[in-house]
Amino acid sequence: MVKLTIKEIAEQLQSINHLNHPFLEEMKKDTRKGVQSLIKKKYEAIKKLELEREQFFTMMQYENAMKLEGFNLIAGIDEVGRGPLAGPVVAAAVILPEHFYLGGINDSKQLTEQKRDEFYNIILDQAAIGVGIISAEEIDRINIYEATKKAMLAALNDLSVFPDYCLIDAMKLTIPVPQTSIIKGDAKSISIAAASIVAKVTRDRMMKRYSEKYPQYHFESNMGYGTKEHIDALHTYGPCPIHRKTFAPIKEMV
């Protein structure tokens, strides 16, 4: 029997996605170092995919429970930007379609920027999405807690279809449908994780645009959070129009 080349083996391995595949078992007997290296990488890749799948279905527990109770349009709601010194608070509401699957989805803070952008495009393409944005000026006027609720309600109302159940990250809203508030919901619910990704990508892109207008604060890297570089810039230049005037240390400066 003619041995396959390492390139041919690599090509065949691309279509394999479970550990008990006969070809994997056969290739384990090949003593070539290049082949063994390929097999090791393939095993690691498959195990990663299996862990992602397991995590995904664990994070479906709330959605599955609500579906068993007869709810069909389940929205996950999350916000980004409660803590920064500058920029808006942004909320997103996401209703995922039936049979949605996205391996590796998680709380947006746990993902790389590249992965967030990739997931954002997938969610945008497949799900119903609403976004709510409350400016720094309004945050100063009504406080960050009320602004967060207002952003979430705006995101809900921005959806093309209103949900019949809401899963909300650590907040309770006055809405005409039942809801569950989940602490650290972006790591426990697929719908909230998706909303977290949409909100963060939306806000980060806004802050990068603001950085072009106010380059001295380096919003493109700190996203408005109080890094040393940001605080130093505040002491040097003072606050700009998108800074939150009721947040320390800005309120002392103002």
Rank of each mutant, 00 (worst) to 15 (best):
N20H: 13
Y210W: 14
A233K: 00
R82K: 13
E54A: 14
I134T: 09
T148P: 02
K184F: 07
Q12H: 13
Q12F: 08
A136I: 05
D78R: 02
R203F: 07
A187Y: 01
E98Y: 02
N121A: 15
S221H: 10
Q114D: 11
K33D: 10
K208Q: 13
E113R: 10
I139A: 02
T174H: 12
D117Q: 15
H230E: 02
I105H: 04
H18T: 10
N20L: 04
F119L: 12
F119S: 04
R53M: 05
I231A: 07
M1F: 00
I183D: 04
G103D: 00
E8S: 12
D158T: 04
P178E: 07
T180C: 11
I134S: 09
C240R: 05
F119M: 15
K213Q: 15
H235C: 04
E220W: 06
Y165E: 07
Q14E: 14
A155V: 09
N222M: 07
I123R: 08
L4C: 01
T246Q: 03
Y237M: 03
E25R: 13
K150S: 07
R53A: 12
E54S: 14
K42R: 12
R116F: 09
M27E: 12
V201T: 07
I139E: 03
L156R: 04
G87T: 05
T112I: 06
I250E: 00
H18L: 03
G87F: 00
G70F: 09
G87P: 00
K213W: 01
D186H: 03
L153S: 10
Q216E: 15
I175N: 01
G104L: 11
L111A: 07
L124W: 08
R244P: 00
G224A: 04
V254S: 10
I129S: 03
A248S: 13
N222T: 07
D107I: 10
T236L: 13
A233E: 06
H18R: 12
P249F: 10
L24K: 06
L234R: 05
A154N: 13
E220G: 04
A187W: 01
G103W: 01
K251W: 05
H235P: 00
K48Y: 13
Q14A: 11
P84C: 06
F247R: 08
V80N: 05
D164E: 09
Q14W: 00
V2G: 00
V94I: 06
Q110P: 00
R203S: 07
K67T: 00
K251C: 13
I6L: 02
E44H: 12
L19D: 04
Y62W: 12
F23T: 05
I123S: 03
T5M: 06
D117F: 11
E229L: 13
D125S: 15
